[in-house]
Design a protein around this nucleic acid. Structure first.
Lengths: 153, 153
DNA sequence: GTCCCTATGTCAAAATCCTGACATGGAAGA
DNA sequence: TCTTCCATGTCAGGATTTTGACATAGGGAC
C-alpha cells in the first residue's frame, strides 16, 4: 500500500527528507537558528541584523526596498524599522520633498552595534563554508541563485 | 569611513547579497513563496503540507517528532495538528497505554488532500531541479546537508 | 490636462510562531 | 526501591509576521 504513489517524485527518492526542498529548508532553518543564538548576545534579531547590514552597504534605502532585500513584507519591515529607530540605531526623516519613499540611514550607534554583531555572524558563515569542499562554493552559490530565479525569487 | 571594516568577510565579497547565508535565505524564501501560492489552491499551508507528507511516509509519528521533522517547535506543531484534526485530515488518539507520545495517522480524506496537493509541490521541485545542471544535484544536496550539520541542524 | 497604473507608507485585524512554564510518563542509576 | 533526569504534551502570554485595505505620490498614455 505504501509503495503506491499517485505522482512520481521529481527525482528518485523514497523519503520526503531526500527532496531538494526539504534539504534547503533544513539548511535555512539551521542557519536561522545559529544566527538567532549568536545575535541574541548582541540584542538583535535576525531581521534587525539583516536590515542593518543592508543599510550599511546601501545607505538611504526605503522601507519597501529593505523589505524586498530581506524577503519580508513592507508591513513587517515597518515594525522592524520602528524597533531600530526606538533604539536609536537608525534614523529616518518624517517627510520628504520628492515621492513617498523615506530614505533610512544608520546612526553611529547603529553602525557600532552592527560591527559588533557582524563578527559573530561571519563566524557562522565561516563554519558553513568550511563544511563543504572549497572548490564547490562558487557552483553552490550559482545553483542557489538559479533555483531562486526559477521560482520567481 | 565606509571602507573601514572591523572584520573581514568569510570570503571575498563586496556586498552582503553575495554571502552564502543571503543566497540560502533567498532560495528558501523563493521556495516558501512558491509553495504558499501552490498550496493555497488546495487549502493547505506549508507547515500543514509538510506535516501530512511526513505522516504519509512515517505513520504514527508523535507531535514532538513531527515538530523536529518540520523544524518548528512542539507548540507550533500542536496548533497545526489541531487544525488538521478539525478538518478531519488526521486522527490522533486521546490517550495511549504506553508513554505520553500520541501517534498520529492520516485519514482517508487527509491522504486524498495530500495526494492532490503533492503534484503541485512536486512541480515546484521539478522547476528547481531543472534550473541547475543535473550533474551537480547530488553534490548540492550533500553540501546543504553538510552546512546544516555544521550549524547544528 | 486627465485618466490610469504602479509604488510607497501605514493602519487594523488575524494568523502564526516562539519563549517560558508546568505536570506527567518512562528510563537509568544509586 | 527510590531518585534523578529526560522527553512529551499542553497552557498562557507575548512577539512576530502576514493578509487586506486605504490614501497618497509620481509617471506615462491619451
Amino acid at each position: 500500500m505504501e509503495d503506491l504513489k499517485p505522482v512520481d517524485p521529481p527525482h528518485p527518492a523514497q523519503d520526503v527528507t531526500e527532496h531538494v526542498g526539504y534539504r534547503l529548508k533544513r539548511a535555512a532553518a539551521a542557519l536561522r537558528g545559529a544566527m538567532d543564538r549568536a545575535l541574541r548576545a548582541h540584542g538583535l534579531t535576525v531581521p534587525q541584523y539583516a536590515c542593518l547590514e543592508l543599510l550599511d552597504q546601501r545607505p538611504g534605502l526605503s522601507n519597501a526596498e529593505l523589505a524586498r532585500g530581506t524577503f519580508v513584507t513592507r508591513q513587517s519591515m515597518n515594525v522592524v524599522l520602528r524597533g531600530l529607530q526606538d533604539e536609536g540605531l537608525i534614523s529616518r526623516p518624517a517627510t520628504t520633498d520628492h515621492g513617498r519613499a523615506l530614505p533610512t540611514h544608520l546612526t553611529a550607534e547603529g553602525r557600532g552595534r552592527l560591527y559588533a554583531a557582524r563578527s559573530a555572524v561571519y563566524a557562522i558563515e565561516r563554519d558553513m563554508i568550511d563544511a563543504i569542499p572549497q572548490r564547490r562554493l562558487a557552483a553552490l552559490l550559482a545553483d542557489l541563485d538559479r533555483m531562486a530565479a526559477a521560482l520567481g525569487g
